[in-house]
Design a binder for these strands. Structure first.
Lengths: 248, 248
DNA sequence: AAGTGGTCTAGACCACTTG
DNA sequence: AAGTGGTCTAGACCACTTT
């Protein structure tokens, strides 16, 4: 039939652009270096700014670039390896974990998916501990830890405390229970407004959502929803720390 | 100072749109139902199509929608829970794993990051087994398993085989070694052209990249790079299968 | 005030699937 | 052939940071 072109693949411009930029980043730019601004780059490649932005978005998603409004686009450092599953199973807040307590609410709402895991009904009181994970001054993750008041013996007394003091009390009580097991899920999400602020990103930024279920006394005693910056984090699971060391 | 508006937050249109659509999906649409086309939806909400698309993209990223060119936009089913870490540590290809062997190359190139884990030099021969993970006829993940020829005793004989036969031979040899440990990392990526085809997505689609390192004889004996569809998959790690059952 | 990335528009054409 | 989502354009204005 004449024109049997093998692989007639009209590659989208932004895809090709991404490849070109990616190679340029490898060979011609150092980490932290500032790229030309979007209008200049677009002109240089002879495309509309929107098309150029499509390529930049992909590269940012892959952790190659970092863009900040009012500042510019810089070459991102390699992703940070973040240990998610501690070698020894332990409660959140146990000695030596990498989280910083921010506060504690009880009025906050519990997402339906979490309520299902906790087996709590709609109005049941739940302690919500807010925590944050930071490395080298840069925020990595935001967390909400949900603990049904029913599993904490002295919930009534704890309810009198406020802020961090209350959070520490909840964690302390939790630590006194026997931890029978835990399991996790990881999925892609987009940052809610609050998380985004805490993570120094815009709302909607891609995040890795780690949901950890803590089992004690034959029931789900707590659920932690940890929201990691997908652009800067590589989650590590493992028996040894070898991967983290190698990949650094 | 007059206008001290508390929280002057001009919420972007696409963000508000996303919220509205999300609630509509919860209350007015069933899984699998087809939404009006983008031009109609944009007109209905009084925004440009590009703006509407920004909202749809977010919802697709979160696994709420599924869009297919030439077909339309449908309401996506809940994400599938996919077990990533088997209860008992075992080699890939062990009895009862969920992967289907596609073939085996030796000529393929080894990404720098993988070569680093394998501690192989640039020209070293490496078996590359291609596998695929499918559930209910829908592709979940694509995988490339890298095994240095040096760790397989009978690599010379295996090199005479081709396609799946060779892949099976490599897996069999691997299974005869002692597995000393394994660890994993999870990060966000975008689908390469080949993966995209295998996953029935467009190139650049968001994926969860799971890198598994298999240790034997004091060295990294194999590295598997598994690329999961981020829109449809929720990766599960855990001691028990409880989470998977609950979340189904 | 100037410069950056983020949002938004109104159009056009293309690639793909389906009747 | 008709209808869908995917790509691309050339502009405009806004929010934010820095000078």
């Amino acid at each position: 039939m004449g024109t049997t072109q093998l692989e007639t693949v009209p590659e989208p411009k932004y895809w090709h652009l991404k490849t070109v930029l990616s190679e340029a980043l490898d060979s011609e730019f150092a980490v932290g270096e500032i790229l030309p601004n979007e209008r200049d780059l677009a002109a240089r490649f002879g495309v509309a700014r929107a098309t150029l932005r499509q390529a930049l978005e992909q590269l940012e998603l892959e952790g190659r670039l970092q863009r900040r409004r009012g500042v510019g686009t810089t070459v991102a450092p390699p992703r940070v390896g973040v240990a998610v599953a501690p070698a020894r199973h332990s409660w959140p807040g146990a000695a030596g974990d990498d989280w910083q307590v921010l506060g504690c609410d009880e009025s906050g709402s519990v997402p339906a998916a979490v309520a299902r895991l906790l087996e709590t009904a709609k109005g049941d009181p739940v302690h919500i501990v807010r925590r944050s994970r930071v490395t080298e001054g840069r925020p990595l993750a935001a967390e909400l830890l949900y603990v049904p008041a029913a599993v904490i013996p002295s919930s009534a007394e704890i309810a009198l405390l406020t802020g961090p003091a209350r959070a520490y009390a909840v964690l302390a009580e939790l630590g006194s229970l026997e931890l029978e097991g835990q399991d996790r899920t990881v999925e892609l999400g987009s940052a809610r407004a609050e998380d985004a602020k805490q993570l120094d990103r815009l709302p909607g930024a891609p995040v890795l959502v780690v949901t950890t279920r803590y089992v004690s006394g034959g029931r789900t005693a707590a659920v932690a929803v940890s929201t990691y910056r997908a652009d800067t984090c590589r989650l590590t699971f493992g028996e040894s720390d070898a991967v983290e060391l190698l990949a650094g």
